[in-house]
Design a protein around this nucleic acid. Structure first.
Length: 976
DNA sequence: GTCCGACCGTA
DNA sequence: TTACGGTCGGACG
């Protein structure tokens, strides 16, 4: 930058608040996202930049930057803790706009500047002085009086909302003092909005008069005795120190350490497509049109950009790989409905959509069946025009890795839905297998016209359980995006409130029972695959699913905004869909021979024990039947003590049998051994080979994203999250999970993540310190509780402390702990009391969590995910106690689940950036399994560790470090 | 054929 | 004492 250049500095943060209050509220039509301040901001930038190109206007910028506050924790808080302490949380419908305005700045191709610990005003002051020093002119786009101290012959201000230039004469006219005395003036008057005290009874007029008379603040304070008016004199003397503090508070820092130099602010040409894409995403139609015209591009050809929405104030940080900013929503306030009406606020939209959903009836006879390419093209054109479409696939199997596409359905508006049959067969098949039904579009033709729709970035695809449809379509060479998933939206909104299947949601929200699958395809032995279903029946069923999905989306999506859950959905759920789909698609290699050999060994060992059991029991029996076992043990043999199950049967649990074995009985021991062997055989070594895919020769599990109340994933068909590890016999099964030739498996797991989360959320100093020091956490607990030194601690003492630590995470009860440790309940009770005495913060956390759950009906993770406990207020003490324990556990288990989700979302980009080929294969709650080429192992592990250990950042800065242990080997057993 | 309880594998 | 899914036996229709 040089003399003659002209720097524009926009006070972005100041603008947000002013625009929010000055402009009418405005929400995005499609989902009710509040965008009023964003709209005003974009219009202002547009105007400033248009004038910048208009050479007939005298003032034109050569350099341009938009400056934001980073957070309210600045050096001023240290000088004066009450500074800005009177500020309440911003209104909820303003919160998402903070992030959007930063994204708008980038869309306009302008530098977006912020710095932790400094206010926007300090950065503006610093840059203004830097520019002045090289002889450049500066215009500050703001009307904030706090910035007026910066005005000089070279620096002026511009109030964009009043279209008014502010120079030295304007400051004098308005405040009665020149700019350089503004600091002293503000020190005297104070500022109620920022909680700057000043001197009581002195307003701008008096302050100006006093400064005129005495020259400056210091002179005034030293000669205060000369003031004639008694009250004024007394006040100035009494509050002199307060005025000096005020001066420090209002004086802008002109030496802020800055990361970006002035030369980086050079005005770049507009990036038309980028700008139009953002404006389209915001649904600012007229500005989109103007921007497209001015930059000479076709707006219709530009796809809206994907915007990230923060719902929590101050949750923005510096640029990171993944835009971020989730944080607890507990401090956010409910949006205030504006009485002036006219504009739909989220709450109104939610209500309107709920009414609409219940009012409109679903007519399954009104759907279209599309049987020729021209009609399909018309529907696709219509969906393109609409910008959104509900989509659903119909297939031959529930397994997306095996299934074949039979048809698909589309819905563009409620009631406006169609089914496209592609591969229906005739039912009266003879030995030749029946024929393909006439009048279906050839699969390749249909996919050719469907692909541009599903991959068009300007058309939102809506599905219920998109991971399934994504996998199906991906196998046909299509990568659907962008998308919304009504199952996941429901999960984010209502986890813990029933299931999130489409039929249940339709029932719950639309008051409509969709056609049951079994009514179309039959059930059990008489069931047929969907390709054998009559096309008319299929049309009613399939098109209805798309219709219902669209209606659910219209109803549920706005609730995300109202409840402040947009970022949970957009950061923790939606991006994971494709990540998990790829993991499922990759599968993991399982060695059939190893399993087969283990199976044989287990069968032999079990058979031997079986004979011994028959001998000891004196008769043959079905050992797998707890009922028969109970009759023998406690009836015929009348062994002592057995407890009963809920249904009054004798319990034959491992615990009971172990206790009997400890008393010297032989039979119970044999039964326990037999159970272990047959469990391993039936559940693992016999079952797993059946899951090996015929083509890929790998095992492809399926992850359920919306199955748990806490935010954890679950795995099924097969469940790869419960592969044995605790016993050496069980661990042999893990040796069958192997890396492909030339590759290694890497296992990376978080160490003690839930206890670390507990230390963070409950703020327990001893735990935090122990994790910071990297010492044995259970031994530390034992030492604190029992006064035993950590060195040479008996293992039994440590074991008890460990059980208590886990108990705490589970919402401890004396009954449960007594059971776990096989000690009297009184003793367990005493342990818990001692624990709470040593770690009082734990007790506080538990009580606070229970109270929150009782008050709100849900609890929250550190990232704002909710887990609902509608029965926490039950009058049944057992039910209530159970819900209390679960609500204590959920924030801990759920926060850990959120952390690993964040790691998973970031993992692929991080590996790609490092040019590594490692593939993420499995997730086991606190562990990730990868497969990578032999030669890349050493380079890959540090990347994995880095992503996992920093996964909470920057949204949450944990008070404890996260530690990840990672190892590579040829099989899962050795890698773990 | 379908459902539920008991049991047990994991974090 | 939290969160899951799979297998089995046994009862029901």
């Amino acid at each position: 930058m040089k003399k003659g250049d002209h720097l524009f500095l926009v006070d972005g943060s100041g603008y947000i608040f002013r625009a929010y209050h000055a402009l009418p509220p405005l929400t995005r039509k499609s989902d009710g996202l509040p965008v009023g301040a964003v709209s005003g901001f974009c219009n202002m930038l547009w105007k400033l930049l248009r004038e910048a190109r208009d050479t007939s206007v005298r003032v034109t910028p050569t350099h341009f930057a938009v400056i934001f506050d980073y957070s309210s924790n600045t050096f001023r808080k240290e000088i004066y803790p009450e500074y800005k302490a009177n500020r309440s949380a911003p209104p909820e419908d303003l919160i998402p706009q903070f992030g959007l305005i930063r994204q708008a700045t980038k869309a306009f191709n302008l530098p977006c500047i912020e710095k932790e610990g400094y206010e926007a005003d300090d950065l503006i002051a610093t840059y203004a002085r830097m520019a002045e020093a090289v002889g450049a002119e500066v215009t500050i786009i703001s009307s904030d009086k706090d910035l007026m101290q910066l005005v000089t012959p070279l620096v002026s201000m511009y109030d964009s909302m009043k279209d008014k230039q502010i120079g030295i004469p304007d400051v004098i006219e308005k405040w009665g003092v020149p700019p350089e005395k503004m600091i002293d003036l503000q020190a005297l008057t104070g500022d109620s909005t920022d909680n700057v005290p000043g001197i009581p009874g002195i307003g701008p007029k008096t302050a100006a008069q006093l400064l005129e008379e005495f020259g400056d603040l210091d002179t005034l304070l030293s000669r205060a005795g000369e003031i004639k008016q008694q009250k004024r004199r007394e006040n100035i003397i009494e509050f002199a120190e307060q005025a000096r503090i005020s001066r420090q508070l209002v004086t802008l820092k002109t030496d802020t350490p800055v990361d970006t130099g002035l030369d980086d602010f050079g005005l770049e040409p507009q990036d038309g497509p980028k700008l139009v894409a953002f404006l389209k995403a915001m649904e600012f139609t007229s500005l989109t049109r103007r921007a497209a015209e001015a930059t000479g591009i076709d707006a219709a050809a530009i796809e809206p950009s994907e915007v990230a929405v923060d719902t929590v104030a101050e949750a923005h940080g510096p640029d990171v790989e993944i835009p971020d900013g989730t944080a607890p929503a507990a401090t956010a306030e409910k949006p205030q409905n504006k009485p002036d009406g006219g504009v739909m606020l989220p709450a109104d939209l939610v209500k309107a959509r709920a009414d609409e959903a219940l009012a409109s009836k679903i007519d399954t006879t009104a759907y279209t069946c599309i049987r020729d390419l021209a009609t399909l093209q018309l529907w696709i054109d219509e969906a393109m025009e609409a910008g959104l479409v509900a989509f659903d696939t119909e297939t031959t199997s529930l397994d997306p890795m095996q299934t074949e596409l039979v048809g698909f359905s589309l819905a563009i508006r409620p009631g406006h839905a169609a089914y496209v049959p592609l591969n229906h067969k005739s039912g009266n098949g003879d030995l030749l297998g029946g024929g393909t039904v006439e009048g279906q579009i050839p699969l390749d033709d249909a996919l050719r016209v469907l692909k541009p729709l599903l991959e068009n970035r300007s058309v939102l695809k809506i599905a219920h359980n998109m991971k399934y449809d994504w996998l199906v379509m991906h196998r046909y060479g299509i990568d659907p995006h962008p998308f919304d998933d009504t199952m996941l939206i429901s999960y984010v909104l209502d986890a813990g409130e029933g299931t999130h299947g489409m039929d249940a949601l339709s029932e719950r929200w639309l008051g409509h029972t969709p056609i049951a699958y079994k009514d179309v395809a039959g059930s059990g032995k008489s069931s047929v695959t969907f390709d054998m279903v009559d096309i008319d029946r299929a049309t009613a069923y399939a098109a209805e699913d798309a219709d219902v999905t669209l209606r659910l989306w219209r109803l549920l999506k706005p609730r995300l905004v109202e409840d402040g859950l947009v970022s949970v959905y957009e950061r923790l759920e939606r991006p994971l869909v494709a990540v998990l789909a790829r993991m499922e698609e990759r599968g993991i290699s399982v060695d059939r021979q190893i399993l087969s050999r283990l199976s044989g060994d287990l069968a032999q060992a079990a058979a031997a024990i079986e004979h011994e059991i028959y001998q000891l029991a004196g008769e043959k029996l079905n050992i797998g039947s707890p009922k028969q076992l109970g009759d023998i043990l406690f009836g015929k043999m009348s062994l002592p003590g057995g407890s009963k199950t809920k249904t009054g049967q004798w319990s034959t649990s491992a615990q009971v049998l172990e206790d009997l074995a400890a008393e010297g009985h032989e039979l119970p021991r044999k039964i326990v051994d037999w159970r272990q062997l047959t469990k391993l055989k039936s559940t693992y070594t016999d079952a797993l080979p059946g899951y090996i895919h015929p083509d890929t020769k790998r095992v492809h599990t399926s992850y359920a994203m919306a199955a748990t109340s806490t935010g954890r994933l679950s795995s099924s068909e097969p469940n790869l999250q419960n592969i044995p590890v605790r016993t050496s016999e069980g661990r042999k099964i893990r040796t069958a999970f192997i890396a492909a030739p030339g590759n290694k498996l890497i296992s990376a797991d978080y160490s003690q993540i839930e206890l670390r989360v507990l230390a963070h959320v409950a703020e327990i100093p001893q735990l935090t310190q122990a994790f910071a020091d990297g010492i044995d956490i259970h031994a530390m607990t034992a030492s604190e509780m029992f006064g035993v030194p950590v060195k040479d601690m008996p293992s039994e003492v440590r074991r008890r402390a460990k059980a208590i630590n886990f108990g705490i995470i589970y919402g401890i009860s004396a009954f449960g702990l007594a059971n776990q440790l096989s000690i009297p309940r009184e003793e367990a009770s005493q342990y818990i009391r001692t624990y709470f005495e040593r770690f009082p913060g734990i007790k506080d956390y538990m009580e606070a969590t229970k109270a929150f759950a009782r008050q709100n009906g849900y609890v929250e993770t550190i990232f704002g995910r909710r887990a609902h406990y509608p029965e926490i207020r039950s009058s049944n003490p057992q039910v209530r106690a159970f819900n209390e324990r679960a609500s204590i556990n959920a924030p801990i288990q759920g926060s850990a689940a959120d952390i690993i989700r964040r790691a998973m979302v970031r993992m692929e980009p991080a590996l790609n950036a490092a040019k590594l080929s490692a593939r993420m294969l499995l997730q086991v709650h606190d562990e990730l399994i990868f497969e990578t080429a032999d030669g890349e192992v050493d380079a890959t592990i540090p990347i994995i560790r880095d992503v996992m250990e920093n996964a909470a950042m920057p949204a949450i800065s944990l008070s404890v470090p996260l530690q990840v242990d990672a190892r590579a080997a040829n099989n899962w057993d050795e890698a773990h």
